[in-house]
């Protein structure tokens, strides 16, 4: 569904990604693994058009999308949930969802507020609460729900389990599995192997801005040497 080839990204003069390439097959959950600073967040931002790639190709269903502005990439079917959530703090939860609302490009049934609230029941009681006054876990759920309101076919989740209480992490994992069952493709970045192992079909491991492993999640989970080298686990 999504293919990345020879992706390079520079921040000023500092190069962060060195020829990253991998595929995200439709209907599956792919985990982008790696330590802090390995380039996971930068990869997702580049896919979304939030940082311009210096070179390389990003194809969505065979169509080049690198160099497009973020809004066009979003309309082409990518949804992005930022690591720091980036909800609109001075607006209500319902208004945050409204900003994300966008009709699906194809004829699929769109997500509704009722449906995202079924996925994240905590949000139902918070509709009129200012988003900045909700807890970290609620903000994470809101960020995912807001992006779902745009009916993405491929959801990019940047570190969805980071800094959350264990019970919320379990809810996020259940939500990711539910999304996959509903036909949404997911690419998530993660340092938490347990979380990634519980939801992902495939794993791509980044180290110092390059791909070191690309294969089944189970293969990564079963290889202690690989985990030790690239994930320090």
């Amino acid at each position: 569904m999504l293919s990345v080839r020879a992706l390079e990204v520079l921040y000023g003069r500092a190069q962060v990604l060195f020829g990253v390439g991998f595929d995200v097959p439709g209907g599956q959950v792919t985990a982008l693994m790696g330590r802090n600073g390995a380039g996971k967040s930068t990869t997702l931002k580049a896919l979304m058009g939030l940082v311009p790639p210096a070179s390389g190709e990003i194809r969505l269903d065979g169509r080049r999308v690198d160099g497009w502005p973020p809004y066009r990439i979003a309309r082409a079917g990518l949804g992005y949930v930022a690591e720091d959530r980036r909800i609109f703090p001075d607006m209500t939860v319902a208004e945050n969802l409204e900003v994300g609302r966008r009709a699906p490009a194809d004829g699929r049934a769109p997500w509704t507020v009722a449906e995202v609230e079924r996925l994240f029941p905590n949000l139902a009681d918070l509709r009129d609460r200012r988003a900045g006054q909700t807890s970290g876990g609620e903000q994470q759920m809101l960020a995912v729900a807001r992006t779902l309101m745009g009916n993405p076919r491929l959801l990019l989740l940047d570190e969805p389990s980071e800094g959350l209480a264990p019970v919320i992490v379990q809810q996020m994992a259940a939500a990711v599995r539910a999304l996959k069952a509903g036909g949404v493709t997911v690419l998530l970045s993660e340092q938490n192997l347990r979380f990634a192992g519980s939801v992902a079909d495939r794993a791509v491991v980044l180290e110092k801005g390059a791909v070191r492993f690309d294969g089944a999640m189970a293969a990564l989970a079963d290889d202690p040497a690989l985990r030790h080298t690239y994930l320090a686990l």
Binding site: L50, Y71, A82, R86, F88, D90, M91, V99, R102, T147
Partner: peptide, 14 residues
């Protein structure tokens, strides 16, 4: 109002 708070994120939402 959303753009007043985080205009880049508004773009990423389409």
């Amino acid at each position: 109002r959303a753009a007043t708070q985080d205009r880049e994120m508004v773009g990423a939402l389409g």
